[in-house]
């Protein structure tokens, strides 16, 4: 069975994250605020090469950019 999101280059992990995010947003407001805090993450990373630290990037932004690149090529 092929899923439409798979054809668009989205991984199963990303699919689950999107589905979970939308479920959290659909809760009644009091529970939604508590649950949405779980979806937030802030992680930065830097690639080191030749003993020098590269640019510090936000992991979520870098992941989103990689996902767009993956979607453009259909996950190939």
């Amino acid at each position: 069975m092929t899923f439409a999101w798979k054809a668009a280059g989205i991984t199963y992990n990303r699919y689950l994250a999107v589905a979970a995010r939308v479920v959290r947003r659909s809760l009644k407001d009091d529970k939604r605020l508590a649950a949405e805090r779980r979806g937030e993450s802030d992680l930065r990373f830097a690639k080191w090469s030749n003993g020098k630290q590269g640019d510090v990037k936000n992991l979520a932004d870098a992941n989103a950019a990689a996902a767009v690149a993956s979607a453009a090529t259909g996950g190939q």
Binding site: I10, V18, V22, V68, A71
Partner: peptide, 14 residues
């Protein structure tokens, strides 16, 4: 983008 549309379709399914 194709990514945004695919994610919106996942959201719609849910």
């Amino acid at each position: 983008s194709e990514q945004d549309i695919a994610e919106a379709k996942i959201e719609l399914e849910v």
